[in-house]
């Protein structure tokens, strides 16, 4: 199949970029989207041009490294699919595709299609952990977790941190990512002692990183490669409002308040 690509090119250290047209002839429909970009890059290298930078790692849809916006949709048109698992057979011969990087103040463009997602790491650093004593693993039966709760926590923990939710959100909000991380810890008994400190700390970090507000567009869950549901955002709102309005805001007192 033959494609026409309009790809965002932005040199490292430059504030401005532009869409550049590339012809991509003889693309095998069984290639993944990233393999298609590999082919385009091979040709660019042979012509002595700078290849298109894009992020990738496992190419199995589980690492969260890859991701570009294809015709305005993060990770492209196929639901529940990361860019690396999107295959060219889902496009038509002769298609024109516009390929852009994630766009958000919290995700500055590094080069071409690569953005800096360090903001997600800093949100995790603010509270996306549990404080536990190290040593031998505890006896599993001493901390029972119901099957329904375990499955819900796993639904939230499926988030791979790719950032598609932010990229697709018309408000550039990071609510789905933050809410998923809060839910997978906050559902389990190990996450209870710091539950309300955690939500306040992670939400504040999220806002400091320049992410937007949530208008409940639900665009995030539609492009999430792991189909993390936007109703976790409601749970985050509940825990945040409860922590801010009804619980003591001192960190020590909040820790003592325990599960709620």
């Amino acid at each position: 199949m033959n494609l026409t690509l309009y790809i965002w090119r932005q040199a490292r250290g430059e504030a401005e970029g532009r869409l550049v047209r590339y012809d991509a002839p003889d693309i095998n429909p069984d290639m993944s989207f990233l393999e298609m970009l590999d082919v385009v890059n091979e040709r660019l290298i042979h012509q002595g041009e700078r290849p298109i930078e894009f992020e990738h790692d496992c190419r199995e849809g589980i690492c969260g490294s890859c991701g570009v916006v294809v015709d305005g949709i993060a990770h492209g048109p196929l639901p529940a699919t990361a860019t690396c698992q999107l295959h060219m057979r889902h496009f038509k011969d002769g298609d024109s595709l516009t390929i852009e990087p994630w766009r958000a103040k919290g995700f500055p463009v590094v080069q071409d299609l690569v953005v800096d997602r360090g903001a997600f790491d800093r949100i995790i650093q603010a509270g996306g952990f549990i404080s536990a004593s190290t040593g031998n693993a505890p006896e599993a039966n001493s901390l029972p977790v119901g099957k329904d709760v375990a499955e819900l926590a796993m639904d939230a923990a499926e988030c791979i941190g790719c950032g598609a939710c932010v990229a697709q959100c018309p408000n550039g909000a990071a609510h789905l990512f933050t809410a998923a991380k809060l839910a997978h810890l906050g559902l389990l008994p190990q996450g209870q002692p710091e539950r309300y400190q955690r939500v306040v700390a992670m939400v504040e970090r999220m806002e400091q990183e320049g992410f937007g507000s949530c208008s409940n567009f639900r665009e995030c869950e539609a492009v999430c490669p792991k189909q993390v549901s936007s109703h976790w955002i409601s749970r985050m709102n509940r825990d945040y409002l409860k922590a801010q309005l009804f619980l003591d805001r001192g960190p020590e007192k909040k820790r003592a308040s325990g599960p709620g």
Binding site: G72, R103, G172
Partner: peptide, 18 residues
């Protein structure tokens, strides 16, 4: 806040389900 968070807009924008 939302406009600041998406200061650079997409050249081609689409909605997924809104």
């Amino acid at each position: 806040q939302a406009q600041r968070a998406r200061a650079t807009r997409y050249q081609r924008h689409a909605y997924a389900q809104a």
